[in-house]
Each structure stands twice: as C-alpha cells, then as structure tokens.
Nucleic acid binder design. Sequence first.
DNA 1: CTATTTCGTCAACCACGTTGACCATCTTAC
DNA 2: GTAAGATGGTCAACGTGGTTGACGAAATAG
Lengths: 158, 158
Amino acid sequence: MATADPARPGFALPLLLLAGFRTLIDDLHAELAREGHPELRPLHGFVLQAVGADGTTATELGQRLGISKQAAGKTVDRLVAVGYLERVDDPSDARRRLVRVTPRGADGLRRSAEIFDRLRAQWADTLGPERVTAMEDDLGTMASANWFRLDVPGWFGG
Amino acid sequence: MATADPARPGFALPLLLLAGFRTLIDDLHAELAREGHPELRPLHGFVLQAVGADGTTATELGQRLGISKQAAGKTVDRLVAVGYLERVDDPSDARRRLVRVTPRGADGLRRSAEIFDRLRAQWADTLGPERVTAMEDDLGTMASANWFRLDVPGWFGG
DNA sequence: CTATTTCGTCAACCACGTTGACCATCTTAC
DNA sequence: GTAAGATGGTCAACGTGGTTGACGAAATAG
C-alpha cells in the first residue's frame, strides 16, 4: 500500500501525506458537526488559531497565514458572519479593526484540540505511540519551512 | 518541533502532514518550472495520472477523482488549453469524448515521477531510508480510505 | 505642515468546487 | 421498430478561497 505503484515509488509519499491529512481533517469535521459546529470549515480552524487569544488585524493575520490582507479580510468576513470572530475598533488607531475570537469561536477551537487529541490517540493505538512520535519528528525535520503557510488558491500552490 | 504546542499535541500532526505534503509539492513545481513546465499546477499532476495512458471520459475522470463530471470537465478544459490533454471523439459512441494525455502531458508526468523520486531520495538521505519507508507504511495503514479523493472546493472538504 | 506609510476596503479577476437543467445519444423493453 | 430510460457532455448560476490594483482615511516622519 505504501508503494502503491512500484514503478513510481516517489509518487506515493505526497499522496500518502495528503491522504493522512485529509483523513484527520475529515474525521475532525465530522465530529465537530456532531458537537454543534457544522459551519466550521477546514480552513477556519487554522484561521482561528492564527487569530489567537489576543486578537489581530486583518493585515497581520494575512502575514501570519502567508496570504494577502484582502484574502485574510474576506475570510474574516465569513467567520464573522457565522459568529466565530468579531471585529472591534482599535481605540488607539482609528485605521485598525481588531479581529477577536468570540466565545463560540473559542468553543470550536477547544473542541478541535480535543478531537485532534483523540484522533492522535487512535493513530497511536493502531501504530504504536512511538511510531506516531517518530512520524511527527521526521516530518518536523523535513517540513519546518512550510509550517504554517496557507497561500493556496484552490488547493496548494500558486 | 513535532510537538510545537505542548498544550495541544494533537494539532501538530495534521499541520505536519500538510507541511510535509506542501514541501514536496512546492519543491516539485519549482523544479518542474525549471524543466519547462511552469504552467503545471499541483492539481494537474493528479489529474494527468488519473487520466492514465489509455485515456478516459470526463464522467469517468470525475468518478476516479471523487468530483462531479462538470468539475472534471472544467479541469480538462484548462489542461487542454495549456496542451497537456486532448479530446477526441469516440467512434463507437457519439456521446463520449475521449480525454487523452498529449506528449507534452506525458513529458510532465514523467518528469514529475523523476522529481518525486529524487525528493524521496532526499528525505531518505536526511531521515534514513527505513524511516521514510516506515512513514509510508504507517500512513498507508491510517489513510487508505482517502487515497485518491480530490473533492475539495477551496481546500479540502465539503 | 507636508510627505510617506499603513490599514482597510472595493472591484475585477482566476481556479476549483457545487447543483440543476438540458440535449443528444445509446440501450433496453415491449 | 419504437417508446422509454439511462448515460455523456455542456451551460448557467453560484460559493469559497486566492490574486492584483486602486484608493481613502489615519498615523507617522521630516
């Protein structure tokens, strides 16, 4: 299975990484929907995390995610519309509009973390805890440069 | 690095899988652009592979990729426009329009496979060949259900 | 006080997905 | 052999997530 196409061993690795990611994300959102967050989309968790407990501005959010301030602003719009973020004026700078996580957003974030912990535990049950840790360590070694970049129109790239 | 946020160990795994995937895909396309395929986008490799040497129809391509026939048709349109796919009438069924990989498409696919092999070899050099194989085996165990699905508006998911 | 930078937004556009509708063609059933 | 149904392809409208360019309002630097 790992080398699904023996003639092209290299093709398997990216496909497997994507499939592993999607497996976790799909499971997460199935469970989130069950727990009262059906509107939360895969991207949203990343954005909520990037906003953080202290809030940010759209421009800074864009920098954190590696996307334009306009794209960040539109994503914030959508999350405001479904009640996960709110915008407040910055009293110290009339140009800035602080973006903050609402209680509902914090709830979704907390549940996401719990669900991910449970999913990771499932992986550990199946593979053995040391295999999961080894995978994380190795991926950390290879992928540190792309840690949190989301500049991905459509899919990934470009 | 593997447990970037010790309070939320579960968050690291999906992020690492995505980062690993993106690292490979970004490196692939940087090299493909250097080798004369700057128009090839990340999605395209998956589609070209799914078309295969014998060709397909848009409807069947959609089924293979887990997307609608309309979406598959539009993607084929774009790949035809840049010369990687061609459409020919099926003499045995006037409804069907066979989609085939052009020589240019085959060249891109062949180079992609070669580049992926080199990237995998880089991972093996850094981590050790057995670690890469172990990662592939473990991911294969956990992710077999999401092997080739691309039904992903925007990013990944519904 | 003026010049520059910064923040947010608008507008147009592209890539990639969705559903619904529709026509043309092939297949099946009578 | 023809009527009815299934299948393949396309068009249209739309949603999400990305891009650039332009521009006004407000802060900062000189």
